[in-house]
Design a binder for these strands. Sequence first.
DNA 1: CTCAAAATGTATCAATCATTACAGATAATA
DNA 2: TATTATCTGTAATGATTGATACATTTTGAG
Lengths: 280, 280
Amino acid sequence: MEKSILERIRAVSDRLTAKERKAAQALLSNYPMAGLETVAGFARIAGVSGPSILRFTSRIGFSSYPEFQQHLRAEMEARLKSPIAKAPQGPGLGDGDGSDLERFAEAAIANIRNTAQSLAPRELEKAAALIGEAPGTVYLIGGRFTDPLARYMAAHLKLLRPRIMHLAGQVDSWRDHLIDMGRKDVLITYDIRRYQEGVIWFAEQAASRKVPIVLFTDQWISPVTRIATHVLPAHIEAPSNFDSSIAILTLTEAVIAHCTRLIWEQAQKRIRDLEELREI
Amino acid sequence: MEKSILERIRAVSDRLTAKERKAAQALLSNYPMAGLETVAGFARIAGVSGPSILRFTSRIGFSSYPEFQQHLRAEMEARLKSPIAKAPQGPGLGDGDGSDLERFAEAAIANIRNTAQSLAPRELEKAAALIGEAPGTVYLIGGRFTDPLARYMAAHLKLLRPRIMHLAGQVDSWRDHLIDMGRKDVLITYDIRRYQEGVIWFAEQAASRKVPIVLFTDQWISPVTRIATHVLPAHIEAPSNFDSSIAILTLTEAVIAHCTRLIWEQAQKRIRDLEELREI
DNA sequence: CTCAAAATGTATCAATCATTACAGATAATA
DNA sequence: TATTATCTGTAATGATTGATACATTTTGAG
């Protein structure tokens, strides 16, 4: 039997030149439609020139571009017709089994599954409601590796509602905000292993001022847990020297999504207004 | 929204002439590959002449055959790429079917799987090597929602090696860095849908100064693709009004992990030194 | 750094393709 | 059956595409 196109790509993948690899990448990312475009269209998608596309198709064993397309169509037809065909929609390439990325991806998936399963029901919804409907200001803080997650959430919340305040930089600069914080506000805290003192201290101060706290943390549970109103713990193990924040980001995005639905009425108008401002 | 091709066919199905109906049936039974052939190929499959095919595509509302094919490709691409439509087949323990988080988690998992599978082998390793071993400075930029990801990577890279520079804030402040950038440096760019002009502009300037570029993007392909040395495209669909960055974070962490292993010798020492400094 | 080898894009050309006009075929109507 | 209207294929043509030669750039060895 003849080799499939995916097998061909894989067979030559480490013999490809830089631009040929870009072509392969583009084809794999938009499989198989990129290959069914014209040479120029494929080239545009891949960000290379026409001839580079032709060198690529030539290298994987086709003597002309139409011949390559013919094979691509035939393969897709076979795949679409077979009853089991729906499942493997992506090209089955990694590196055999255990490429680095494959292992990492599987670990991430396990983290997400475990996190989703072990979360208390409705905890997420409650946290989202608290954030979306807080009459005061929503403050966000994070540690060394989690501060970007706080920023990520802040960037989204700013589109949804007013009064979002991400606390960055030095602990000293946070302190001044405390004086204005109260029970109508919310503090979103990100804190994972190697729980940072500054973050903990700030959360405690806020708690003593009756500020409700939403805590994103790992399964080892930050000290902030004791004083948090809602705790969203995630799994963070990874085949790496560093912990993985993927499950925390999943929780974060899920909260954002839920929050969005909750206050979509106001948010929609706000987003429109913001876009108008941007155009000026 | 525009009608799908199937809807168009159904809409006119009783107004078709004999040969046009043959064309329609041929397309439906070899959907969609028959329509991606040349006119002559489609005609051969349907057992009619070329012009009959063109009369058919014209009747369902397309002014040219290429336009028809473009729609067909776009539809198939959308269909092949939407993991959201999939039923949440996860471990439905406890919560029956689909809590919000469950659905979100499954979409995230699908994104990670698709991303891992469609990435060209060794592309990630090469990007990691470029970043880990660059003799110059590693610069990072991102857009509104992706800047936090750039920060996240920067926070990790700072532990692994010297000369990490995250470019934040206004475009104006980035510009001054350009003068020092050259082929020994690396620019890590994050750019997803609604590709931001500032980011694109900066990447182009860097590219013209021979700075190698590693691009984290979505599968819709940022304009930066054409000038990037390594492209790492991720799937970003989510059951939300916002796109999901989870797969991009997965790629990011995988690059960090690989990078860590690659330069562990120096990194280990560096981390020790940093911790000593911290204790003082 | 220099120079040779490899890789890549530009410009050009030949081949192929979609398109159209028109003639022949078919069906409908009287 | 004659006549007309509609449908369909053939053949010619202009547009587009894939292919290639060559100049330029990039890469890697010494």
